[in-house]
Design a protein around this nucleic acid. Structure first.
Lengths: 349, 349
DNA sequence: TATAGTATAGAAAACGTTTGCTATGGGAAT
DNA sequence: ATTCCCATAGCAAACGTTTTCTATACTATA
């Protein structure tokens, strides 16, 4: 359509137009402190304007500049929790003058590693990583990457670099305890496969509470990972909640409370229960995890454990930019605290 | 910590290690058809492996290669509809060997333009754009960008390039008609500000149906954009639904149906109604738009107009990659059709 | 045996910047 | 008038690739 492929204007074009050398043009256009006469400065600026000059970032980076984009890796961008977290992170990148590359690994460690390799090849200036892979091989790999990196939300045991973790165990404990204190006795922890630290820790926290209050051995763990093999997902979606709901309905002596792995699953369970006429919270209490926007929109409103995405993003971005500015800094670690948010899905004591 | 900053290995290192020239190394490593002896080939491959070589994409691109990343711009990544659309697009990029940069403009035209400039500076190989800006100045700007670009979902009037649009007017018509045919007479269209084509068209479709069935002039349009100025959002969120719900409850002769701008707003309205004891669909029918995952999770299940994100992504990605492969192609345009999905929020006739 | 042809390899230029170094001119200090 | 310094400006190297062009050593042909 437009005929011959127009070439971009370079500093050479500007140099010619303004009667200067490329060195001087570069110095003017990159606001260097190098002394250049005002006259020439103006001429160069005008020429740049006239020719609609945009620097070629590839030569800049090649020459040794740092790449002002950071890579963000999360398990699943369609999970509202991560969508919010990514959004909060992205806002801070923009504020710092960085672009961001968002990668969703779809709960697939292989894809996650692939994303990471791509980001490294792209030589992004920094990486914010929420990984579901806590294999020691992966952690070893992580140790070798030359790019500033912060691991957030889920941080694998033994990871030594910068991180801001969420206290999943405490969150699990708080959730279970909330149920216990409202008088529930038969509490089930409902989850798809326990395949990563953040899930195991939630369960451990639940066990802490169960043990502390001396509750009896009940079929306390309800796992449904039946169709896991067949799909590219780590579970944790609505359909998993539906499946778990059916499973719960099938036990002979019904639990009086369920602690769901996350909010989405909690909603799936609530809906399955409602369909069969069992009322929440009157017949069974339900508690979620994450506090996605959505938790406030369902009926009854979902009582849940809040992960503060904004705080997490704030800490993670802060330490990432600090490290980019000074890679020699010692590693730091933050933890963000869970928070109980009361709504209407747990019966009052 | 790690002491001196280790330099990346380059083809020069490999050349030295394997006793070859950089030219040969480049040819081997980029799988060129150029004849190189098997012996040397092997030596170079082994050296590359040993030194953990990764090509520097910046020099590759600088040298004239194309940048295998595409930029995706959407109004809001936290909107589940766009999250899904982005996810569907991203999957196709990966399949085509492209990375993707996802940018959320938060319903802010200034930020959107800024994102676009960044993508151009990054010289991404292609851009997939869902814009909320249909000013003629913006369309003119769009015409001048040198990068392959496809506009999807919302395409502004007068945009000439590749696009895959959604038939919002027809969608609006289908929604309103569904309500009318179930016997509703006083149907209100509930929306935050009508500030972009996709919203205006929905309203127009609604009017089409209203007119066609000769319905009476009722306070048919319910706008709540009160606090718009104060926030970085174009409206369309849950709180907008709540506000609209309150407004609807306040009218003297209550509507018997509401057509919401989108699913999230529909849920907000349903919840507000439920809180005051008005039942959906018995007292008032509610219909949404988009068919986000969420629409199936609320009670009653939300009847809505489906925008097929997967189909949209498929078309958009297809035409984008086609254009990248051959920029001289004439522009093409596709439209994806709305689809009514029945659930339980509209009363049966 | 001379000649051409073929397979293989390397030297070097180019992509668009940044930057260390050198060069020029003029004013101030001697 | 000589010396020195300072303010300007440009030259050219370097970043890591790709690619064109040239060079070498065989092998096959006349």
């Amino acid at each position: 359509m437009t005929g011959a492929k127009r070439k971009r204007t370079t500093i050479h074009d500007i140099a010619r137009e303004a009667g200067a050398s490329t060195a001087t043009v570069s110095r003017v256009l990159s606001d260097s402190a190098y002394p250049v006469s005002d006259l020439l400065r103006r001429k160069i600026r005008k020429a740049a304007e006239k020719l609609d000059y945009r620097p070629n970032i590839f030569s800049q980076i090649l020459k040794g500049g740092i790449n002002k984009t950071i890579g963000i890796v999360v398990p699943s961008i369609t999970n509202p929790f991560y969508a919010q977290l990514v959004s909060d992170l992205e806002r801070r990148c923009i504020a710092a003058g960085f672009a961001s590359i968002i990668c969703s690994s779809y709960d697939n460690p292989r894809l996650e590693l692939n994303h990471l390799e791509i980001l490294l090849r792209q030589q992004v200036g920094g990486i914010a990583l929420c990984t579901i892979n806590d294999s020691s091989a992966f952690i070893a790999r992580l140790r070798t990457i030359p790019t500033p990196c912060v691991v957030f939300d889920q941080v694998p045991d033994g990871y030594q670099g910068d991180s801001v973790s969420f206290d999943f165990r405490k969150g699990g404990y708080m959730a279970a305890r909330r149920l216990i204190e409202s008088g529930c006795k038969r509490i089930v922890f409902a989850t798809p496969a326990i395949d990563r630290a953040s899930r195991r820790l939630r369960y451990l926290g639940y066990r802490d509470a169960i043990g502390e209050y001396g509750l009896s051995p009940f079929p306390e763990l309800m796992i449904d990972a039946a169709d896991k093999a067949g799909r590219e997902s780590g579970g944790g979606e609505y359909r998993d909640g539906l499946a778990l709901g059916r499973k719960i309905l099938a036990v002979r002596r019904r639990p009086d409370a369920v602690m769901a792995l996350n909010d989405i699953i909690a909603v799936g369970i609530m809906n399955t229960l409602a369909e069969r006429g069992v009322r929440v919270p009157d017949d069974v209490s339900v508690i979620g995890f994450d506090d996605i926007n959505f938790a406030a929109m369902v009926t009854p409103g979902l009582t849940t454990i809040r992960q503060d995405t904004d705080r997490t993003a704030d800490l993670a971005a802060g330490m990432l930019f600090a490290r980019i500015a000074n890679p020699a800094l010692p590693a730091v670690h933050f933890a963000v605290e869970p928070q109980l948010v009361e709504r209407a899905s747990v019966r009052v004591a």
